[in-house]
């Protein structure tokens, strides 16, 4: 009997120390390990408790209501002031929406203007450009499972097609729409994940003919930048240097996207294994994962001649 009581005490003590150790370990676990499953466990307790909280909350609100600064005023004045507050809120909401629409129109117009300018620089026309505004609703960084991507709030239902070019701030390349477009969403592959497209390099401080600009084929690297190899012999436009701007000059890309700014030359150095070549490193002009919205461009829809003016409704 005594032995049984002592073994019960011993097992109880063991259980107690195990419970304490578990509590200690749980309280010191890194937070990201607790996200998710702890909320599920807590739901088991919280769901029945929430029902009990309602009467106590009502009792609290009855015993100690929210102070109302208009409490002393007559009821009519209280009602009028409430209406006035509601009207003010509505007016402010309209003002904010108006500002956002203005920004969106300016962005679309800027994109159109930049496209026209870029197309002229590349000796082509932009009369077949189609632009579309989209908001970035998700940005997935690169992981061991997948490369980085942007999710847009528009899809095939809105007219998005694979290969459309996403731009930021009028003329900066963000990326291209992936091959599969969902009905209401689409994925954009960031520019620094795109490989093997042709660009021309232009100096930032002077204007040179596109035909004289050096041409390179950009190759993406793991670091999120591009490299290309150019011949050592200087081009008619002079030697390429840090700060030169790379612009799309690939015939396989939609015509309106040619001339878009892609990146800036970060480094120019010799190639040890090929003395006649120099290695050019290009860094993207914009961090695609931080872009809040984009303008998508394509060439598939012809625009009537009278609406080729940049300000007129190319946006859908």
């Amino acid at each position: 009997m005594a032995r049984s009581a002592s073994s019960q005490t011993r097992s109880e003590r063991r259980a107690w120390y195990a419970a304490l150790a578990t509590a200690l370990v749980l309280s010191l676990l890194p937070t990201r390990w607790l996200v998710g499953w702890t909320s599920d466990v807590a739901q088991l307790v919280n769901v029945p408790i929430v029902a009990l909280k309602h009467p106590f909350s009502l009792a609290r609100a009855w015993l100690r209501p929210m102070p109302d600064p208009r409490e002393a005023e007559p009821e009519k004045i209280q009602a009028l002031e409430s209406d006035l507050d509601a009207a003010r809120t509505l007016y402010k909401r309209m003002e904010i929406e108006n500002e956002l629409l203005k920004e969106r129109i300016a962005l679309l117009e800027g994109a159109k203007l930049a496209l026209l300018d870029g197309a002229r620089a590349m000796s082509s026309s932009a009369d077949r450009a189609r632009t579309m505004y989209a908001t970035v609703v998700g940005a997935t960084p690169a992981s061991s499972r997948s490369p980085s991507s942007l999710t847009l709030n528009v899809g095939s239902w809105h007219g998005i097609t694979p290969g459309m070019v996403a731009t930021w701030n009028g003329d900066v390349l963000v990326g291209r729409v992936a091959d599969t477009v969902e009905r209401f969403t689409s994925l954009v592959i960031p520019a620094n994940g795109l490989n093997g497209f042709e660009v021309r390099f232009f100096p930032p401080d002077r204007d040179i003919p596109a035909a004289d600009a050096p041409v390179g084929l950009l190759k993406a690297t793991k670091e999120g930048i591009w490299t290309t190899d150019l011949r050592q012999a200087s081009s008619p436009a002079g030697d390429i240097a840090e700060g030169w701007i790379a612009r799309i000059a690939d015939e396989r890309w939609p015509q309106p996207s040619r001339g878009l700014r892609v990146g800036v030359v970060e480094r120019v150095g010799p190639r040890d294994d090929a003395p006649l070549l120099k290695r050019v490193t290009v860094r993207p002009l914009v961090d695609a994962l931080r872009v809040p919205h984009v303008v998508l461009i394509d060439e598939s829809v012809a625009i009537p001649a009278e609406s080729a003016q940049p300000a007129k409704g190319s946006a859908r």
Binding site: L20, A23, L24, V25, L26, S27, L28, T31, R32, L34, V35, G36, T38, S39, V41, A42, L44, V45, N46, I49
Partner: peptide, 22 residues
């Protein structure tokens, strides 16, 4: 602990089980 929620990175809810026990 199970009825006191917390936020990780300002947006992701979790429950820290342990400190109040101890």
């Amino acid at each position: 602990d199970l009825t006191t929620p917390a936020l990780f990175d300002g947006t992701r809810p979790y429950h820290l089980i342990g400190p109040t026990i101890l």
